[in-house]
């Protein structure tokens, strides 16, 4: 703060602070607060708003427990409320997307950070970034085409003789998973790349010199060092996936129902913003709880991620 004052003077510093405060307060805090407040109020016709029926309750939150559908889990049939099922599937598949992104990003990050010649790095980064120049909507549509039953992916796989019959990619949650991994894998890649980049190469060599095979060097030296990067990448990919609407809408099949789609249905199809808000907060709070639990299991502290 002192530093800012000295460098930019009172006027400019004041403007920075005010703008940031405006952004935080008016564009983030207030709308969320408005939604939170609304989530506790019933959905009423305009004339009843502020009337005797307009009281605070958890009714909107409780709606998630209504309506049930039998579900097969590992051979057992359990009966779950439809929206709870959608929520659990969203969390489960988002976690799967996170794991898949890690599996793809870690080797690539290691390759970029420690193996590739520094002079070819800019080209490789450019290649990674090029897809981002196209809008997310177009990219999702592109995947829709790629994954369609008679699309280029099946055509190539058939042509190469890898599969015998075309695979129905846009079925269940498959295409959503593919789309989410594709959209968010870079959020995993860069934190891990940064973490591995900061590891002294001599440590990797020291491990090898002491006789360590490559997998043990990764397990004991590189992965522990990269843990904060992995954690922040994982939190980002998980939260973004669970909160994504575009990809599930564009790449979803008839059997898929992402939780954000449920929220959207409440808000825009039922025009019930109150229940929609309640669902949105359920998603936010439970995902945060889930992430905190996972972080505790892996012994990652919030301060590690902030680094």
């Amino acid at each position: 703060m002192q530093d800012l004052l000295r460098r930019y003077g009172t006027g400019l510093t004041g403007a920075f602070v005010l703008l940031t405060a405006f952004w935080l307060l008016v564009l983030i805090v207030l709308p969320n607060f408005y939604l939170l407040e609304n989530s506790f109020r019933p959905y009423l016709p305009r004339v009843d708003m502020g009337g005797p029926l307009d009281t605070y309750s958890f009714d909107n939150y409780a709606k998630i427990l209504t309506g049930s559908s039998p579900t097969e889990v590992f051979g057992l049939t359990v009966t779950l409320p439809v929206h709870v099922k959608s929520f659990l599937l969203t969390v489960g598949y988002s976690a799967f997307v996170t794991v898949l992104s890690f599996a793809l990003a870690y080797p690539l990050a290691y390759y970029l950070a420690k193996i590739v010649q520094p002079k070819s790095l800019p080209t490789l980064f450019l290649l990674l970034f090029v897809p981002l120049w196209v809008s997310e909507v177009l990219r999702s549509f592109a995947w829709f085409i790629i994954l369609s039953l008679k699309g280029p992916l099946n055509f190539s796989l058939l042509g190469l003789g890898i599969i015998e019959a075309p695979i129905r990619w846009i079925a269940g949650y498959r295409s959503i998973i593919i789309g989410l991994v594709y959209t968010y894998v870079l959020f995993m890649l860069f934190p891990i790349y940064n973490a591995i980049q900061s590891l002294d190469t001599n440590q990797i060599e020291a491990a090898e010199d002491l006789g360590s095979p490559w997998w043990r060097t990764h397990w004991r030296v590189i992965l522990p060092h990269a843990k904060p990067g992995i954690a922040s990448g994982a939190v980002m990919v998980f939260m973004l996936s669970a909160g994504s609407l575009l990809v599930p809408v564009l790449l979803g099949s008839t059997e898929s129902n992402w939780f954000t789609q449920v929220i959207q249905q409440w808000m825009f199809e039922a025009a019930d913003w109150n229940t929609g808000s309640a669902y949105a907060f359920i998603l936010l709070v439970l995902c945060t709880v889930f992430v905190s639990l996972v972080m505790r299991v892996f012994r990652v502290k919030l301060s590690d991620i902030a680094k």
Binding site: D200, S212, R216, R220
Partner: peptide, 25 residues
């Protein structure tokens, strides 16, 4: 066994784990 110019000890392991790394392997 090479001793590096900057030593390259493993900062996330205890002293004993550092020394025993080659044996763990």
């Amino acid at each position: 066994a090479l001793i590096f110019q900057n030593l390259a000890l493993f900062p996330l392991m205890s002293v004993a784990d550092n020394i025993a790394f080659g044996l763990e392997v």
